[in-house]
Design a protein around this nucleic acid. Structure first.
Lengths: 213, 213
DNA sequence: CGGCATCCGTGACGATACTG
DNA sequence: CAGTATCGTCACGGATGCCG
């Protein structure tokens, strides 16, 4: 079951690792930060995880208060997993991890899987730093689409999600994964990427105008 | 050897977990954030880690650029392990983990080990938030002593360390682990703890005066 | 004595097959 | 679709031994 193998240390970081240290756990959190997911979706976006391990992690995470399992209303009645508030509070952890790991994206190995929404967190950081304003930005990569909510002072939940934003978007940008990587590594600034045509911005609102510089 | 078991995902967080996801790795980083340590010291402050796993982790971490192994000059010639700059960059990760895990410190199990410097990071956050000024504070708990450097705008390396500060301290405080926990959980404010006598402050500098309120 | 390497039992993990 | 069952392999934890 759960991390019966506790570190048994009276230390906040060790306590966190008791709940998060198992393989795949934090990556499942990363997936669910993009919104509720079904078991099969999780399995598809976590290449390499075996079915039993995924099921075991989801059980442990629910037991530890990180996730809940909810049955979708018909039609399409299925179970979806989503983060609790406690689980959503892990956003800073994923951000810190991603920031530290960004330099390691320099090399792109042929065996590496790619999903569009994996770039949501790094890109969100760039957009926040650029202070382009407030609103929802729809992002299109070759690998797929996602959306991010920038400038939300509430610092509330669901700052980004997979696919198009249900409530619509204030601006749309299109770029490739390489540009995304360069932005997240700090090797490229948002302004320069837009100026060089590596980011295509569509939309007419103030947010789109701000993105164009 | 090293995480031969990569997640094989082109994602910054996954790349970070490739290097950090193995058991004990992040706790070794936590230890080394308090300063260089010898193998035996690490083994003593990480109860439960087996000798071969510790040696293996230290080798992997050195290979991944997180740590270096240096021979101390005689007398007392021994090897010490210390973080590289890349390794020190993990401070935000440990901070985020610690902040998230702090609520789990409510229950203190009898099997839990305790070390004084494990409270350094949480306490550092409290002191930074209280904005008491700038300088080095020596902290004494029943479990041991450590020191923290507050208000250092440089945000540089070595914001805290085990034992007394080599360069001396501007103020000294004495408190118990329970008070430390309450502070890190946000259940107790620094001002109130000082006022209630749960923190004893000694020293005459501006930093000590600021701590007294 | 500090710094590991070796051996061994157990449990976690990964892949495949199978079921409601 | 959403898992459970089975199995081989590897990583982990504990103990011991070696070597400077």
């Amino acid at each position: 079951m759960s991390p019966r193998r506790s570190y048994d240390q009276y230390c906040p970081a060790a306590r966190a690792l008791d709940a998060l240290g198992d393989r795949w756990t934090l990556l499942i959190v990363r997936e669910l930060l993009a919104g509720p997911r079904r078991y099969t979706d999780l399995h598809a976006d976590l290449p390499g995880v075996s079915t039993d391990v995924l099921a075991s992690r989801l059980r442990d995470m629910e037991r530890d208060g990180l996730t809940t399992r909810r049955r979708l209303p018909p039609p399409g009645a299925a179970y979806v997993y989503e983060l609790t508030e406690r689980g959503s509070d892990l956003l800073p952890v994923l951000q810190a991890l991603g920031e530290w790991g960004a330099p390691a994206l320099e090399e792109r190995r042929p065996t590496d899987a790619v999903r569009a929404h994996w770039f949501a967190l790094p890109l969100l950081r760039c957009l926040e730093e650029a202070a382009v304003g407030e609103g929802v930005i729809q992002v299109r990569l070759d690998e797929g689409e996602f959306h991010v909510r920038v400038g939300d002072a509430a610092e509330g939940r669901a700052v980004y999600g997979d696919g198009p934003a249900p409530e619509g978007s204030d601006a749309r940008i299109s770029l490739d994964a390489e540009t995304c990587t360069a932005l997240s590594r700090g090797a490229l600034r948002l302004r320069d990427a837009v100026r060089d045509g590596r980011i295509d911005v569509t939309g007419e609102g103030t947010l789109a105008k701000a993105l164009r510089g």
